[in-house]
Design a protein around this nucleic acid. Structure first.
Lengths: 184, 184
DNA sequence: TAGAATAGAATGACCGTTCTATCTAATATA
DNA sequence: TATATTAGATAGAACGGTCATTCTATTCTA
């Protein structure tokens, strides 16, 4: 049986706790208890804590893209604004302090591990996403626009920690509109 | 003797290690060894690891503002651009992966502790800094402009992790110019 | 000679991981 | 239908290591 309820519970609880307290700030004991699962059940589904972190990141990334894709219609007038809006709604739903992927890059940097690779991969994909969108829309300086919008999303996530997702998103949408117009 | 060489060494080494590996990712043993100091010397100067973290943050904040102030002349044509440039140079000098203050907020969130208060205080001050600047320059929507520029700085720091400080700063300066012009 | 700084051991808590032994429930066999 | 087999899940102890913190006893230095 490939699907497992316990595995899902573990991933859900682990993602919540890792996001709130950090990867190093949460012990497996806590995860096991809150997921109502035995120690060996965790190790039956995941090789190690690192492997659990990996799977959590993969799951979160998958959910992020599903969410973005459901909002952005790439044939719309300005898919860029839709993407910024979608990111804002994601923040409101699932983020209140920083970004799990940047945190993973920081926490596991320099050890040549899978975790950092997954996190960096996600960020690279985000940049690539905007690059393709800008090219498809025939924007001048499409390369620059993509970088600018990515920077905007990252800034919005950071600002969420300080002023909340709603306010942060209002500002980023306003800025995105100006930038997209500028790029003619 | 208020000044102490050992204390300075500890703060410098701790800041480097905390920034690179995270507060929870660095043990006191490592700090002690790299600072060439005995265990009790650390506890002679700092009450606890948390207290060491606090002092590291205070020192870093102080250095940040010194750096910014040395670049920004508030009577210049556009002190905003100077501030963004200064932040970029700070990143190039002292940051290559994320922001130590945001990381502190994340790592020590929800425990009602001094560390989070210091980190949040720094961020509040940054926002306040731009608000005053925008007011002094008689900008329309000065409140919005301050938020936008703060978001820009936060975004630049995050992007530094992904594309390096130079590139990230080029983009944020370009964006800042547009925003400041818009705010007439 | 007094005050710091030293090295290093001791402490108790927690960490990730493994092990053992028991239990349950579904599946395959007769 | 009744029985045997198998796979998962369970609780909890045990392991070796590291953590922050404290203690002790010695050495340096002003």
């Amino acid at each position: 049986m490939s699907y497992s309820v316990k595995r899902e519970q573990l991933l859900r609880v682990a993602e919540d706790l890792f996001y709130q307290y950090g990867f190093r700030g949460v012990g497996l004991k806590q995860i096991i208890q809150e997921a109502n699962v035995a120690t060996m059940t965790l190790y039956n589904h995941f090789n190690s804590k690192d492997n659990l972190v990996e799977e959590v990141l993969r799951q979160r990334e998958s959910r992020y893209w599903t969410y973005l894709d459901s909002y952005v219609e790439s044939d719309a007038d300005s898919p860029f604004i839709l993407a910024v809006e979608a990111h804002g709604k994601w923040l409101k739903k699932e983020s209140y302090q920083g970004d799990m992927f940047l945190r993973a890059i920081e926490d596991y940097s320099g050890e040549d591990n899978e975790i950092e690779a997954i996190a960096r991969g996600h960020k690279a994909k985000l940049l690539q996403y905007f690059k393709k969108l800008a090219q498809a829309k025939g924007k001048d300086h499409d390369h620059d626009l993509a970088h600018q919008l990515t920077l905007l999303l990252e800034g919005t996530t950071s600002m969420t920690t300080l002023i909340g997702a709603e306010q942060a998103t209002e500002h980023s949408i306003a800025m995105a509109r100006i930038l997209v117009r500028q790029a003619s």
